[in-house]
Design a protein around this nucleic acid. Structure first.
Lengths: 358, 358
DNA sequence: CCCAATGCTCGAAACGATTTGACCGATGGT
DNA sequence: ACCATCGGTCAAATCGTTTCGAGCATTGGG
């Protein structure tokens, strides 16, 4: 087939075989620019004869100065980050929208295998834009590495970065609404299960000074939102938004508060996974939901395995958030100005909240 | 900074500024080949002065003929594929191993947004190898597209492809062991909840002719394995390995079989998510587990939200499967021969199986 | 019959790096 | 002193494509 077997045919060889110039052959494939149907067919026929499978992406990318790749920095190993349906749904919306522009998503772990430094992909991989979601810290080595390379960045759910587009939600207002719902039901002793404050794997009750140390933006905003509505009797920090951590936290909260008369009558969790864990803990302790304890979450996930309970939760449009991130990427590549998009949230009442006991 | 502001400095400009040749400058960055520390410093200093952030990946890739990218074809939209922890854990192992070689993972949806054809990324994106997992069909358009482009392929959990490495497990032997466990406990009326047979979204009981139509390899093998141990009273096909489908299936299986004397006393599911759904259905029907019905799954997932139940399940090493896939990719790029790796499985007894009633 | 316009095709110059082999001065052995 | 060796540097070729502007027929109008 090819002249040197083993090495793939190139556009130049196809052109030669078809008796046209390389530029014309290129036109036959790209479709940009004027070309006779006849000539195009001739080129395509030669291509087929030589086993040429289309322009080599590497050559095209170099020439165009674009890789067509969007790096997505996930805050953790995929195995952990994607245990959270929140991350998965956002990713889904993102992939869909980028796909319409022929852009691909490169997965970049936010924590490196080695203890120090960031993932090598961050330093070397080709990407037109990077998307930073799920836990941008104030002093993020990931962000620093990208900025050092002059890679443009889109931020989701984090603190604003210089000239980077930001997609976010009203964390504070949303969770405040959930807590007001609890207050309206007569709850006064409300406990809080919080998202991680930073990357440290801390777990346990939070005191006043620790409260000011919440580095991740959604966490800080949700802490504030809760306090807009009530002063929680206890805030419990978790190492990750996972069911088992919610369960551990709720077990502590509900069983150390003996006598029952002083036990919190409601728990507000910063995420649905944490709330689901709390539901499970309550069940294990023989508590009825919502008669003995009310539980509210955040995210609006569909959790069929929690059946028959349905979480009261602050719904956020996750796929839309991903889509908005994708759109921000596209706009950035088109040279438009960075904008901030804030998506709406809203409380959805389920079966896990009800009137306070007594 | 750069000569033409707005366009990034290149290695050539750095070399010029440092008073060395381009080749020497290249050496300073790549570290391959002999170079004086003094010269290297000179180059690095110039680079810093010009704001050069390291060799452009696009140029490097073209020259090397390698993109450093591994395309991972997920059988569905990420939003659905990653709701299954099985897929997530495999991905995790894969990303980890590829990361050690500086290889990145490009996510490619297996189904395109448009009804016909495959995802454009499959046709155009640069990748050194593609990994095909989770549902390679016998006549897979995805595979066909990759082969047309001459992209080398690594297959996981599917039917063997010509000269492609394959990573698999003993589906058949594993599930047979689980069913034998049920038989040993005295169960005779055993129902089966099966993984999808193909890409069609079918759901419902399976008859004899449909049984022969299982196109996906794991499904076919697990069907066979069940039959190695017992003849199930009923096989129920599901559209995806998700909790809600397991729940729907088990609800039908357990409630249409009145009188209770003829109800299956055990259910074997092709996956843990389906089995978990069955557990939830049984709970909802007021059946005790395992006193009234035993339930076994496959995968060995850790499902904290199923508490207090712990599934009896056939454990498979998912992260290791991903790691093996990654190693296969690396071997392929190193020019080694394609091998087939079969990973071990083993039955783990939980709390969801017990002696048959009566 | 001439000129302008139109429509294709082509040559050449990028895009930004890596790598091979030549070259050159210095070092060390005899 | 001479020659072989060696470490370091460099020039040039190459990777495969896209795109710009020029060039060349052909056509239509006046």
């Amino acid at each position: 087939m090819g002249r040197t077997p083993g090495s793939r045919p190139t556009l130049a060889r196809v052109a030669e075989h078809a008796g046209v110039s390389v530029s014309t052959a290129s036109l036959a494939f790209s479709g940009a620019g004027p070309i006779t149907g006849e000539t195009r067919d001739k080129v395509l026929t030669s291509a087929a004869a030589l086993g040429y499978t289309g322009p080599n992406p590497l050559g095209r990318q170099l020439r165009r100065g674009r890789s067509g790749i969007v790096g997505v920095v996930i805050g953790d190993h995929p195995g952990r980050a994607f245990r959270d349906p929140v991350a998965v749904q956002v990713l889904d919306g993102l992939v869909d929208v980028l796909g319409t522009q022929g852009l691909g998503v490169l997965l970049i772990p936010g924590v490196s295998g080695s203890v120090d430094g960031v993932d090598p992909l961050l330093e070397t991989a080709a990407m037109d834009v990077a998307v930073l979601v799920w836990g941008v810290l104030s002093d993020d080595p990931t962000l620093a590495a990208l900025q050092r390379r002059n890679v443009r960045v889109v931020v989701g759910d984090g603190r604003p970065v210089d000239g980077a587009p930001l997609v976010t939600i009203d964390d504070r207002g949303g969770i405040a609404e959930a807590v007001r719902h609890l207050v309206a039901l007569g709850h006064t002793r409300i406990a809080e299960i919080a998202l991680p404050f930073g990357h440290g794997e801390r777990s346990g009750p939070v005191d006043a000074t620790r409260l000011t140390r919440a580095d991740r933006t959604p966490t800080a905003n949700r802490l504030a939102g809760v306090r807009d509505a009530v002063d929680p009797v206890l805030t419990w920090e978790t190492p990750a938004s996972l069911v088992e951590h919610g369960r551990d936290a709720a077990t502590e909260i509900l069983s150390t508060w003996v006598p029952a008369a002083e036990r919190p009558t409601a728990i507000v969790a910063h995420s649905d996974l944490l709330a689901a864990g709390a539901v499970i803990a309550a069940r294990e302790l023989g508590l009825r939901i919502p008669e003995d304890v009310s539980i509210a979450g955040f995210d609006g996930l569909d959790l069929p395995w929690l059946s028959p309970d349905v979480l009261t939760s602050v719904h956020q449009p996750l796929r839309e958030k991903g889509a908005a991130l994708g759109q921000a990427v596209i706009d950035l590549l088109a040279g438009e100005e960075a904008r901030t998009v804030t998506l709406p949230v809203g409380l959805t009442i389920g079966t896990t909240t009800g009137p306070a006991p007594e």
